[in-house]
């Protein structure tokens, strides 16, 4: 009897997941629909006359945008790691005076709406000529990820036994050596987690891109899609094809790195 009930639950689970993912399916379906049938009523539920013209448009128009997004994403990952890992090591293991208020500030920092940061950045970048530049965008995007990175790393590094670092100190290793040779290798999973989210947020960012890079030659894919929507509201297959391509990093990360995300999130719980 329990087996039969479990079977029903699986079926219900599949149905619920299908409902939840319907918009994603619809995005793919529309991306494969020919322009001539885009306004058909009712729309086809399956891409019966499937075409790849949308994807050809992506290859024609959007490759530079994708390249910029990739660059901005990777830059944000590097900047985030370089800033947050050492800080977290200090907070978790070196116990600086004033560390507690700093953690509090980082928590608060995460709550500041990006639109407000964008306005401040705009005023500053305008003055120093950093508008419409990739480094400017990397710095702005990193503000989303750095506080998160410090908090994740701190939670993980708190769980590293003090015996390990104490042993290194007895062997004559300084703080930097301990950090590089002991802490960093152990923290591999949280490095992957922080990198993942930093990349994904930078890749998905729209507010900073549209405010700080609105007139640049090198724009990220979010602006590529936005301009597509503004310019041709007829060719939704191209727009949705771009959306599908822009979703690839999210899909890859979910499939490849799901266990790292889980590892990072449960890392803090190991200690107690």
């Amino acid at each position: 009897m329990t087996r039969r009930r479990a079977w029903w639950k699986t079926l219900l689970g599949v149905v619920l997941t299908a409902i939840m993912l319907f918009p994603v399916y619809w995005m793919i379906n529309v991306s494969l629909t020919p322009t001539t049938e885009m306004r058909k009523s009712p729309p086809d539920w399956f891409p019966v006359h499937g075409t790849i013209e949308g994807y050809l448009a992506v290859a024609r128009d959007q490759l530079p945008y994708l390249g910029v997004s990739l660059l901005v994403g990777l830059g944000t990952v590097v900047l985030t790691l370089v800033l947050s890992a050492p800080a977290a090591y200090s907070l978790a293991k070196l116990r600086p005076r004033g560390g507690r208020p700093l953690s509090f500030i980082l928590l608060i920092a995460q709550m500041i709406p990006a639109i407000i940061m964008a306005m401040g950045f705009y005023a500053i970048y305008l003055g120093i000529g950093m508008l419409n530049s990739i480094p400017g965008l990397i710095v702005a995007d990193s503000t989303i990820a750095v506080p998160f990175g410090v908090l994740i790393f701190t939670a993980f590094m708190n769980g590293i036994p003090d015996e390990l670092t104490a042993a290194a100190t007895i062997d004559g290793a300084g703080a930097w050596r301990t950090f590089r040779s002991i802490i960093l290798p152990i923290s591999r999973n949280s490095i992957v987690t922080v990198s993942l989210f930093a990349f994904l947020w930078a890749w998905s960012d729209f507010i900073f891109a549209s405010t700080l890079d609105g007139g640049g030659d090198l724009q990220p894919i979010t602006l590529g899609i936005y301009k597509y929507i503004g310019n041709n509201n007829q060719e939704w297959n191209s727009i949705m094809a771009t959306a599908v391509v822009a979703s690839i990093p999210a899909a890859v990360l979910l499939v490849v790195a799901q266990r790292y995300v889980a590892a990072g999130i449960t890392a803090g719980a190991v200690k107690d």
Binding site: G13, L21, A243, A250
Partner: peptide, 29 residues
């Protein structure tokens, strides 16, 4: 139940997609 963890992982998709992707998809829907 069977497949529970796989389906639960799939539920993460909407949250991981870039917001402009979700927003433009909903616009068209």
């Amino acid at each position: 139940f069977r497949l529970a963890s796989t389906l639960r992982a799939l539920f993460l998709v909407p949250w991981l997609l870039p917001l402009i992707v979700s927003a433009s998809t909903w616009s068209w829907m």
